[in-house]
Each structure stands twice: as structure tokens, then as C-alpha cells.
Computed example of a mutant assay.
Amino acid sequence: MKALTWQGKRSVSVEMVPDPVIEKGTDAIVRITSSAICGSDLHLYEVLGPYMKAGDILGHEPMGVVEEVGPDVRNLKPGDRVVIPFNISCGRCWMCKQGLQSQCETTQVHAHNSGASLFGFSELYGSVPGGQAEYLRVPHADYGPIKVGHELPDERYLYLSDILPTAWQGVKYADVPAGGTLAVFGLGPVGQFASRVGRHLGQRVIAVEPVPERRRMAERHGVETIDFTKDIGDQLRDMTDGRGPDAVVDAVGMEAHHSPVGAFAQNAVGLLPDALAKKAMETAGVDRMTVLHAAIDSVRRGGTVSLSGVYGGTASPMPLLTMFDKQIQLRMGQCNVRRWTDELLPLVEDPADPLGVMDLKTHEVDLDGAAAAYEIFQKKEDGCIKVVLKP
């Protein structure tokens, strides 16, 4: 089959690889019909290369049609249409039963002291082949896949794999009081959905984003937008009675713009041999912290900062004096996708499309065009906000 593979920093290519096969009784093989490129894929493309191997199959936002199931899978059959959550969870362990599927005790990657295995990610999360391919082996298919109907187009359902529940969890963790104000930093795909979720839940939403096309998309959904500037905290306080927003969702993460020191550290680490680069990332601060520090500065006293953007440094500096003095609550983590499925599925199937799932995709390409799409997405060229691949 064809699959998009990681080959090096800023280098991906479509290669012919062996078709996946059933390995365990709870496996399924899914023929992929759509697979999106995620902002987290760009972290592998740029920063987290030391944990990747040439030939690793990328992609963790897929959906498709079941081709084959193992003998222990009784909830699915060939021909069923499914969305595949990006984290692999069993549904039976203590963590899964607490709604913490991203910490699944069955699939945790103990070699790196990491949470649940993820599709198409690095060795930090199990090096499980991903879904930017023609076919995908799905472990724990007796629990993970989300079965959907055949009537609606893929884009109605595709984002249930990651970015929509990630945004939903980010806003839920933000815990905005009734009638309160939510600020969202970053209007990539997760930030777009977080802004819309906030509006859907009745909140005032102010989104901070330097790219005009991304601001215009958010404005179509009733979101107030402002550019990112060095005095962004003062701007947000001016807009919120001098206090700041009740909560902030950071939907940017480790590769924030306007972070020259972090950018230098990331580039320097990228020049090291893999073994040394891993050591540096495991003992140093290599995140670009501008957005996180701006969120901490901007949020009102007693407010909440919710991190949906991914961070990777283990010694990134934090303004603890400010955080303590302002009595800030900080929440974060990989999304527990299956925890939110029952709440989100009716919304994506609603003909009114209240979360605007049909207004996110800006580019659609076949698998052979994926390498060029990665570059356009990373550079934010051609108005690129969300790319969907069609194998």
C-alpha cells in the first residue's frame, strides 16, 4: 500500500510499504477514506525528529471503512464506517473507566514513561504506524473506533478523531463561568474549534492570532479577534473591565511565533545527533514559551489556563511567582477522545452544523500531494488552515 513516511527534518515522502494485517484478536483493518494533517504532525516534521525513524508512517486523524476484524471484535463488521481516535485505549482499565483514555494503562509506553500509545507518532508514544496511508491496523478495535453512518460526508465526522474533542476538552477544562469570557490563543484547527465551542456554550470568545485569514475564519462564527502583539495582556484587560479573561486556552504550544530564544534552542537541538538531541530535550527547556507566558499574564486573577497545544521540553521556565500570586489554575493533557464522543456526535450530525465542521478544511489533496501540503501548512501559505488527504 501507499503510505506517507517520515524521512527526516522537514522531509516526508509517499512510499510503498507492506499492507497491515491482523496481529491480535482485538485488531481491525480499516481502509482509509480521509486522513487530516494535524498541527501535532508539524511537531514531528520540525522539532521531535530525534524520536522518529526513517520510514515511520505518519497520521493520527483518520477515518474509513472496516475491511477485516479479529475474532474478538464483535462490535464491528466489514463495511462499517468508523472514525479512529488518535489515542489507542482499551476501555477496560482503571484509567479508561475514569474517562482518562489518553492515560490507558494497557497501552502506556513504559519505556518512555509516557501515556497511551498514539497512532502515527514518535517512539515516545509507541511508534504505531499511522493513518496517512491507504490502510490502517487498529488495535483495541473492540473499543476505540467510533461507528458512524454512511449518509453524511467524511468532513462531518473526520475531526472527531482528534481536533474537535481536543478543542472541546480544552474549553471544558477552562471552566469558564456562566456569561464569562474565554480567550483563545492561536487559530489553527484546534483554536478554531475551541473558539466555536466557547461560542456554542454561551461564552464571549476573544481569539488572538497574527494571521489575517485565520482571524477572518473565526469571525464568521461570531468570535472577536485581535492580532498578537507584545502588549496583548494589556489589550485583553482593556476588553474585560481591567481584569483579563476568565480563562485562556493555549492552542499553540511548543512552536509559538515571537519566541527567539526557544526557536534558537529548537534549531540547535535539531543539529545534534539523535542520542544527544534526545538527552537535550529530556533535560532542557526547548519550548517556545511566548504564548504560554502571555496566557498566564493575560488571564484574570483566580482564572484558568487550559493547554491544548503540545509542549515537549522537560525544563521549560515557568513564572511560578506570578502563577501563585494570581491564584491561577493550570489544566492540560492529551485529549481523552472517547470520553467526549457521546456529547460531540449529535453536534456533528446536526444539520445546522453548530460547530462549523464543514467550515474548516481549506485544502484537499491526494496522498501523493501530502509532502507539498505539509510544507504549505507549516509555512501558513495559501490561506492553509486544515488539509485533508484522500488516499
Rank of each mutant, 00 (worst) to 15 (best):
P139F: 01
A265W: 10
G64V: 04
L136Y: 01
F86N: 06
A167R: 01
I226W: 01
F264V: 02
T314N: 13
G233N: 15
G333C: 10
A167D: 09
I232T: 11
I29V: 09
G91Y: 02
K53A: 14
G309H: 06
P129M: 10
T322H: 08
Q7S: 08
V184R: 00
T26E: 02
I37M: 07
L367T: 08
F324W: 11
R31Y: 02
I22Q: 05
E155N: 07
R214A: 01
T283G: 08
F324Q: 06
S114M: 13
A277N: 05
K386R: 12
A116F: 03
V109N: 14
P260I: 11
L344R: 07
L124H: 01
G149I: 04
F264K: 04
G356S: 10
G313S: 09
P317G: 14
T33H: 02
F228P: 00
E61P: 04
Q101W: 00
D175K: 11
W6D: 00
K24W: 10
L345E: 00
G8E: 11
T229E: 15
K386S: 12
V305M: 09
P351Q: 03
L271G: 15
V337W: 01
V299K: 03
R10K: 11
A194I: 13
G383E: 12
Y125Q: 05
M16Q: 15
M289E: 07
A218Y: 02
S161Q: 04
S122M: 03
G8H: 09
T304H: 03
G91R: 00
Q108C: 10
V291I: 15
G383Y: 06
Y135G: 00
L345A: 06
G222C: 04
P245C: 11
S195C: 02
I32M: 05
A183N: 10
I57Q: 07
A111D: 15
G126K: 08
M1Y: 02
P317Y: 08
L187F: 05
Y157G: 02
V310M: 10
G59F: 00
T229Y: 07
I328V: 14
T225F: 08
H221D: 05
G8L: 05
H200A: 12
A280V: 14
Q169D: 14
T26Y: 00
Y143A: 04
S34I: 00
A352V: 13
M63L: 15
D350V: 07
K390V: 14
L347H: 12
H200R: 14
R331A: 10
Q192M: 15
A251K: 01
G303C: 07
V83M: 03
D368H: 12
V286E: 00
D238Q: 13
D353Y: 11
